[in-house]
């Protein structure tokens, strides 16, 4: 443990309102901590710049999953376990359920939260490609009230977001209109559990009259932010799945991403695997 607990403050207000009041009183001074699976790691390594923390763990307002006929609204404080075990998430948003199931081990799934994954804003975060393809919208809250922003605009750069210094992510909303799609997702990591992605993909697709009717493809760990492959999607839409399409889709997908060499993998490998995953997804649509 490379930090001194005496140097840190932590408060645990009883309500969401009290938390946002605290954030408003000293904008940028308080770091929210939910399950601690990111914050506590930095803290133990002696690398947590923030000295004042506010606990949002288990706030009832953040830990609910509300289902209406149009959408599902997932509290930002819901854990990966909550997501994995929720019936509607499992059946209609399987990409998210799968991502939750391969984020860390069981203990971290019991503490890590969807909101944490979003604001931590790592390009390797497992749940974010799924949010991209489901056109997720985020509800942000502050003393100024709530605002709703599309997730695709939220994540602006490497570990950067549009969250204001007095704001919290309150909930994630997913429209219930993807049940007719083929869902495909894979995580490529250094091992089968407890791995940080080298590349991950979440994709939805639908075939009609022998051609790809609609397709949505997102990748993680191949750019500073999780990426929707707009060009690749445009290329394949309206076309039949055949070997030549797979080749050109691979090429366009690789051109759309900006992978890097780092401690976990190489840019060349990431690009090749990303292309392979896109092709594998399209093949599955073809078989569907």
């Amino acid at each position: 443990m490379r930090s001194n607990p005496a140097d840190y403050q932590l408060v645990a207000p009883a309500s969401l309102q009290a938390v946002v009041s605290l954030l408003a009183a000293e904008p940028g001074a308080w770091l929210p901590i939910a399950g601690g699976t990111d914050v506590m790691v930095q803290y133990a390594a002696g690398k947590l710049p923030a000295r004042k923390l506010v606990s949002i763990w288990n706030l009832p307002e953040l830990r609910r999953i509300e289902v209406s006929p149009e959408e599902i609204r997932i509290g930002a404080g819901c854990t990966y376990t909550d997501l994995r075990e929720h019936e509607v998430v499992q059946s209609e948003f399987s990409l998210l359920a799968r991502a939750a199931a391969w984020t860390g081990g069981i203990a971290n799934q019991n503490r890590g939260t969807l909101g944490g994954n979003i604001v931590n804003a790592s390009p390797a975060a497992d749940s974010l490609p799924a949010l991209l393809v489901y056109d997720a919208e985020l509800i942000l809250i502050s003393v100024r009230g709530e605002r709703r922003v599309p997730y695709k605009d939220f994540h602006t750069g490497y570990k950067k977001t549009k969250l204001a210094s007095d704001e919290l992510v309150r909930a994630v909303c997913l429209a219930r209109r993807f049940s007719g799609y083929l869902a495909y997702t894979r995580k490529v990591g250094a091992r089968n559990a407890q791995a940080i992605s080298k590349v991950c993909i979440a994709a939805l697709g639908r075939r009609a009259s022998g051609v790809v009717e609609d397709v949505r493809i997102a990748l993680g760990s191949v750019a500073p932010v999780p990426l929707r492959l707009a060009e690749t999607e445009r290329l394949v839409t309206g076309k039949p799945v055949e070997p030549s399409l797979l080749v050109s889709a691979k090429r366009v997908a690789i051109a759309e991403i900006q992978p890097i060499d780092d401690i976990r993998s190489t840019a060349r490998y990431r690009a090749a695997v990303a292309g392979n995953l896109v092709a594998e997804f399209l093949e599955k649509i073809g078989e569907n």
Binding site: A190, R191, N192, A193, Q194, A195, I196, I263, R264
Partner: peptide, 27 residues
């Protein structure tokens, strides 16, 4: 198949359990 020590100037660059990869029960 898993465990690689990444060196730079005589120093291990991946000296954490998150990036020095030993197999789990799922592997």
């Amino acid at each position: 198949l898993y465990e690689k020590v990444i060196w730079q100037n005589g120093r291990m660059q991946n000296g954490q359990m998150t990036n020095y990869i030993m197999p789990t029960s799922a592997d």
